[in-house]
């Protein structure tokens, strides 16, 4: 099947970009999520409000619109020198990562937070009672348990994140969906192209589900 060998490469390259987008965005999201959760623990009203505002804003605006705002909007108000820098280094990729990263950062923050809230207060009390500081208790007792609880929602949001990277095609990032559309419209082998890409996405999604399941099993607290 020469179609496969010729255009298969293009699709796989698209997949590679998709994965690169996904990993970069995921790291940003996780960092943002963790940061927001930790910062909320200071219990300062203003910070609480700021975090809430950020989370609500991110979640109630479509990811495509976030991408537009960053790629068309923010780039235009950047100082000249930064603009040139960004353009040289695949600005569309960078802005896509920022937009998607912040969007899912808000969701990850909620997932981590719900994990934390599921830990009974007695754990914190017991940890402090043996002499751990607040930070120590968090690090050694609370967070390890909370992150385990957060794995399922984090996992499903991760799968969604990978799917959302497909939106980057709109601003010209040549990830898998872009490649699919490209190949389909140039070869007119529409069914085959979409079938292959669908299969690739399904493989990625199922792989993530397996990894998540394996991870969940490995860190499982026995008897819970």
């Amino acid at each position: 099947m020469s179609f496969l060998t010729e255009y298969g490469i293009v699709l796989l390259q698209g997949l590679a970009i998709t994965l690169a987008l996904s990993i970069s965005s995921w790291l940003l999201s996780f960092a943002v999520g963790l940061f927001l959760t930790l910062v909320r623990m200071t219990k300062i009203r203003a910070i609480e409000w700021a975090v809430l505002a950020f989370v609500e804003y991110q979640r109630n605006v479509p990811p495509l619109v976030h991408i537009f705002l960053w790629y068309f909007g923010v780039s235009s108000i950047l100082p000249e020198s930064l603009q040139e820098l960004v353009n040289e280094y695949h600005g569309e990729f960078i802005f896509a990562v920022i937009a998607i990263g912040l969007y899912y950062g808000a969701y990850f923050a909620e997932d981590i937070r719900s994990g934390l809230r599921s830990i009974p207060k007695g754990q914190q009390e017991a940890a402090r009672a043996i002499g751990l500081s607040y930070a120590g208790a968090m690090r050694r007792v609370i967070l390890p348990q909370a992150l385990r609880v957060s794995i399922p929602p984090l996992l499903s949001n991760t799968v969604m994140l990978v799917k959302t990277t497909s939106l980057a095609m709109v601003i010209g990032v040549m990830e898998l969906t872009y490649a699919t559309k490209d190949v389909a419209s140039s070869t007119f082998r529409i069914f085959e192209t979409y079938a292959i890409s669908t299969a690739l996405y399904v493989v990625v999604a199922l792989t993530l589900l397996f990894i998540g399941g394996w991870l969940g099993q490995r860190v499982r607290i026995k008897g819970r």
């Binding site: 799917k163 939106l167 095609m169 709109v170 669908t198 996405y201 399904v202």
Partner: peptide, 22 residues
Amino acid sequence: RYLLRSIPLVMLIFGAYFIVPI
């Protein structure tokens, strides 16, 4: 359920856009 939850909506939209008229 597994199939439709694995593929991005935008790909489904493009797919439908090309395939349905055919």
